[in-house]
């Protein structure tokens, strides 16, 4: 499902009378079970590419195929369904629904999917335990630290066993210890469950975890290398 193919993606923005090229004929293939980092300076197009892969943003031209399904012909509702059932998102901040508790946040997608109450409750509890948040299930986002909030977001992203997790600067607001714990968790999920991770970052320590590093600048892919992953020093 999570094989990703992008062909000749272009995307421009207009800001203050200026045209900004976010994606400039980007072509890319990502295999199932990959652990990929997109890196580059701010404005290089990482987030735009990530949003396009998740069907959140529509490129001006080019084609994206996720798990054999072309995204360009899908309606908003169909794209939503694709994300609901196949893609987990982790953002840099504002990841959680503030009026729901940690468990309810994790259960939320399953509720929308129609998973029975008992099943989703058990699953949410188990996944929260896995990400080290046992005992904090009843807390609302405001009562959790930034690292704990990110873990809840990860728990939510993986609870439904998506084939693909897209993470946009997931460690940007975390201290080193929390960032290392989060990345360890990603690596474990990638290895044990075969979840494909595509992570955008400009944090060199995060890049160390990736098996594949894709460098971007001015909307172009400027490097694409395989590497031996190594954990960050905390």
């Amino acid at each position: 499902m999570s094989d990703i193919a992008c062909r000749e993606l272009c995307k421009t923005f207009h800001q203050g009378g200026e045209t900004i090229t976010a994606l400039d004929h980007v072509s890319l293939d990502i295999e199932e079970g990959s652990f990929v980092c997109l890196f580059g300076p701010s404005g290089s197009g990482k987030t735009t590419l990530l949003n396009a892969l998740g069907g959140l943003d529509t490129p001006d031209s080019g084609a994206i195929t996720v798990g054999g399904q072309r995204l360009d012909g899908l309606s908003r509702g169909e794209l939503a369904d694709l994300r609901l059932h196949n893609i987990g998102f982790v953002f840099q901040a504002y990841n959680l629904i503030t009026v729901l508790t940690a468990r309810e946040n994790v259960e939320f997608i399953m509720q929308v999917q129609g998973v029975p109450a008992g099943e989703r409750r058990a699953l949410a509890t188990r996944v929260l335990e896995e990400v080290g948040l046992a005992g904090l299930e009843g807390r609302r986002p405001g009562e959790l630290s930034g690292g704990q909030q990110q873990r809840v977001a990860v728990a939510r992203a993986i609870a439904t066993s998506p084939a693909l997790v897209l993470a946009d600067e997931p460690t940007a607001n975390l201290d080193s210890r929390s960032a290392a714990q989060l990345m360890d968790l990603f690596v474990t999920l990638n290895k044990e469950r075969g979840v494909t991770f595509v992570i955008s970052t400009h944090d060199a320590r995060v890049m160390g975890y990736a098996r594949r590093l894709i460098g971007m600048r001015d909307g172009l892919i400027v490097s694409d290398e395989q590497q031996q992953p190594h954990a960050m020093d905390v």
Binding site: R76, G77, A80, F89, Y94, L96, V112
Partner: peptide, 18 residues
Amino acid sequence: ERVREIGLMQALGMRPGL
């Protein structure tokens, strides 16, 4: 006040109708 949260719900896969 919660535009971001609505964006998040869309990203998570909530259909516009929901």
